[in-house]
Simulated scan of single mutants.
Amino acid sequence: MTLPRISVSVKAAILHDDQVLLLSYDDHSGFHYNLPGGKAQEGENLRAAVHRKVAQETGLAVAADRLLLVTEYVPAAWNNEFGTVHKTQFTFLARPLGNTTTPRFQDPPDPIQVGFEWTPVDRLTEVYLLPRIGEPLVAALHGRLRDPFIDRW
C-alpha cells in the first residue's frame, strides 16, 4: 500500500478589535479572501509555521494561540475543484504583537494578491472566504463550535 501525499498548511485568524485580517486575491477562483498562512515546512512545528507565514505574507508578528479549526480537502470528494493534492489545514487564533496592525505586501509581491482587509468577525460569513470556513470560523471565534473538524474545502 502506498501512503498518500498530504499537504499540511496553517492559517491564522488574526484577531484585533473584533476584526480578522483577510488577504484578498483575484485568480482562477475569482475574487476571494484567505486567511494569512501557507504550507508548513518539513520539521517545522505548526505554531512556528504560523509565525513564519504571517510574517512573510503580512509583515506582522503574531502570537499563535489556540487551535480553532482543522480543515481537510480530499480531491476525489470535491471533483478536484481545488487541485489533486490531499490537504489538511490547521487554523489558529492569533494576536498581533507590538504596536503595528498595518499589513504590508510580500517582497516580491504575490501577483494574484490584491489587498488586505480587517473584517468584523460577524461579517466573515458574508465574504467569499476560501476554504469555505466562514460559519465554523465565526462559531469557533465565539466559542460555540462543537466540532472543529471541517471536511469540505
Score class of each variant (00 low, 15 high):
T2R: 10
L3E: 12
R5L: 13
I6W: 12
I6P: 07
S7A: 13
V10I: 06
K11T: 12
A12L: 09
A12T: 09
A13P: 11
A13Y: 07
H16F: 14
D17Q: 08
D18F: 07
D18S: 08
D18R: 01
L21M: 05
L21W: 01
S24L: 09
S24Q: 15
Y25E: 06
Y25D: 05
D27G: 00
D27K: 04
H28R: 09
S29I: 02
G30F: 00
Y33Q: 07
N34R: 13
G38W: 04
K39I: 12
A40G: 10
E42D: 14
G43D: 09
G43A: 06
E44P: 15
R47M: 08
A49Y: 06
K53V: 04
K53F: 06
V54G: 04
V54W: 02
Q56V: 11
E57A: 08
L60R: 04
A61P: 15
A61W: 13
V62F: 02
D65P: 05
L69E: 01
L69M: 03
V70R: 14
T71F: 07
E72Y: 09
E72T: 07
E72C: 05
Y73I: 00
P75Q: 07
W78T: 13
W78V: 14
W78S: 15
N80H: 14
F82C: 04
V85N: 15
H86F: 11
Q89E: 15
F90K: 12
F90E: 04
F90N: 09
T91G: 05
T91W: 04
F92T: 05
R95L: 12
P96Q: 08
L97P: 10
N99D: 15
T101R: 01
T102R: 03
P103V: 00
R104I: 10
Q106G: 10
Q106L: 09
P108K: 00
P108F: 01
P109D: 02
D110I: 03
P111L: 00
P111F: 00
I112F: 13
I112K: 15
Q113D: 07
G115Q: 05
F116N: 02
F116V: 05
F116W: 02
W118P: 14
D122R: 06
T125G: 07
T125V: 08
V127N: 00
L129P: 10
L130P: 07
L130F: 03
R132T: 09
R132V: 06
I133K: 09
I133W: 06
G134P: 11
E135L: 13
A139Y: 06
A140P: 07
L141E: 02
L141K: 00
H142A: 11
G143I: 05
G143D: 05
R144M: 10
L145A: 02
L145C: 04
L145M: 03
R146W: 10
D147N: 13
D147T: 08
P148Y: 04
P148Q: 06
F149A: 13
F149H: 13
I150A: 07
D151F: 15
